[in-house]
């Protein structure tokens, strides 16, 4: 089975039903995507498959095979942070940071679909991502900040 992650192709064998999150973390050493609940309820494991945010903890490997997968590790390019990553830093949009990769990937999926989402739209799109530290207001601010930066085209 071929798995294409962050532009790199990996040859994988074994059970095609095992979940994508475990493959990324334990087999490919891409530990940026986090385990939080194992039932697609917290969003900490979010990755993009063909540009759409997906909960990798409930996604079987076979579903992800041969599709372009982007994880948090693949978001920056040539050492330049993605505007969302920069915006999370600028807005101080985290406390413990454990939910942050999933938050950023969900937001990346949203911004790919909708360049300038209003707050209610962000709230709806991010409803499946839990920040137990309660940093929600700052995360909304960060997503808006990133949308503005991407609109100005200030990113690479």
């Amino acid at each position: 089975m071929d798995l294409e992650v962050n532009g790199r192709t990996y040859k994988l064998e074994g059970d095609p039903e095992r979940n994508l999150l475990g493959v990324l973390r334990d087999e490919l050493d891409l530990t940026g995507s986090k385990y939080g609940c194992g039932e697609g309820q917290c969003g900490a494991c979010t990755v993009l498959i063909a540009g759409a945010p997906v909960r990798s903890c409930i996604t079987p490997l076979r579903v992800a095979a041969a599709k372009a997968i982007t994880t948090i590790e693949g978001l920056a390019s040539n050492g330049n942070l993605h505007p969302l990553q920069q915006a999370f830093l600028d807005a101080d949009a985290f406390q413990c940071g454990y939910c942050t990769p999933g938050m950023i990937m969900s937001a990346a999926g949203l911004l790919a679909k909708s360049a300038n989402p209003a707050t209610p739209q962000i709230t709806r799109a991010m409803h499946g991502n839990v920040c137990r530290c309660g940093t929600y207001p700052k995360i909304i601010a960060a997503v808006r900040l990133a949308a503005a930066a991407m609109k100005r085209g200030t990113h690479a």
Binding site: K34, L81, F94, T100
Partner: peptide, 23 residues
């Protein structure tokens, strides 16, 4: 003063190793 989180960059890039990330 509001100093940004000192290891914030490692958190937004997914590189900060939390315990479950250690190998």
């Amino acid at each position: 003063e509001s100093v940004p989180k000192v290891n914030g960059r490692a958190m937004v890039t997914g590189h900060h190793p939390y315990t479950p990330d250690i190998k």
